[in-house]
Amino acid sequence: MARVAIVTGGTRGIGEAISLALQAEGVTVAANYAGNDERANAFSDRTGIAVFKWDVSSHEACIAGVAEVERVLGPIDIVVNNAGITRDGTLLKMSYDDWKAVIDTNLGGCFNMAKATFAGMKERKFGRFVNIGSINGQAGQYGQVNYAAAKSGIHGFTKALAQEGARFGITVNAIAPGYIDTDMVAAVPSEVLQKIVAKIPVGRLGQAHEIARGVTFLCSEEGAFVTGSTLSINGGQHMY
């Protein structure tokens, strides 16, 4: 019987690539999304991957969303916490709402999804969590105290939860992408993007499928001895 995975933010960008890569490995994928119904439904029609709408920053919505996925697809074996938002600005210009929204979604979403799925994984003696961090959570970034704090928190969350899950066959790992060629990066002004690429030793942006391949390994049976780790996939931009 195929394992079941939830990929949060799973219908676009890195999340879409992860959903497709897991599907190609024979995993039954549920792609969570929060906003664009039209785009999510188009993704589902194109790929055959079921989509489920809820806001990962809401604890109650995650509990209900996971229950619905399990009702439709079966028990959850894999959770990829990919959903994330940005609300950039320097500290002096950043509102509390912008701080809280990013922390609640990017970091709080990891807690909410783990809380909704960990007990079932423990009972079945198998589980995989992959949390998508960021190079900016490792190195910091000007104008992103909220985003950098949330992503840095993901790396600590990963190490702590890995210790809780290890004896139950549950692995917990993180991937820290560098700058990836997605819609979010495409929105960066070209002159700024050129400066970013100039600092990447391999001389290019990463591709979403390169992140997805890391995820599929960590979710596989072959990845069972890897837990509490952060895999940096950033073209050598930050060696951590």
Results as ranks from 00 to 15, higher is better:
M1G: 13
A2L: 11
V4D: 00
A5H: 09
V7C: 06
G9F: 00
G10P: 09
R12I: 11
G15R: 04
G15I: 12
A17P: 05
I18Y: 00
I18M: 00
L20R: 08
A21P: 07
Q23C: 09
Q23T: 14
E25L: 04
E25K: 09
T28N: 06
T28W: 03
A30Y: 09
A30E: 06
Y33Q: 07
Y33R: 10
Y33M: 07
D37R: 12
E38V: 15
F43L: 14
F43S: 06
T47I: 06
V51K: 10
V56W: 07
H59Q: 13
E60V: 10
E60G: 08
A61G: 03
A64C: 14
A64S: 11
G65K: 00
A67D: 13
E68Y: 04
V69D: 00
E70C: 02
E70I: 07
E70G: 09
R71A: 12
V72L: 11
G74N: 07
P75R: 10
V80I: 10
V80Y: 12
A83W: 02
L91T: 09
L91C: 12
K93Y: 13
M94D: 10
S95N: 08
W99I: 03
K100Q: 12
K100W: 15
A101C: 02
I103Y: 03
I103P: 01
N106W: 01
L107S: 01
G109K: 01
K115Y: 11
K115A: 13
A116Y: 07
A119H: 06
G120C: 08
M121K: 12
E123A: 14
E123I: 13
F126K: 05
R128C: 11
F129T: 04
V130T: 03
V130R: 03
N131V: 15
I135C: 14
I135N: 14
Q138S: 01
G140M: 10
Q141A: 05
Q144E: 04
V145G: 06
N146Y: 02
Y147H: 11
K151C: 01
I154C: 02
I154E: 00
H155I: 15
T158K: 02
A160D: 14
E164A: 12
A166Q: 08
R167A: 15
R167E: 15
F168S: 12
G169F: 09
T171S: 06
A176N: 03
Y179A: 09
Y179V: 05
T182E: 13
V185I: 14
V192S: 13
L193W: 13
L193V: 08
A198W: 06
P201Q: 04
V202K: 15
V202C: 12
L205D: 05
G206H: 03
Q207C: 13
Q207W: 09
I211Y: 01
R213K: 13
G214D: 09
T216C: 05
E221K: 12
V226K: 09
V226P: 05
G228H: 05
S229M: 12
S229K: 06
T230F: 05
S232L: 14
S232M: 14
G236D: 01
H238K: 14
Y240I: 15
Y240M: 15
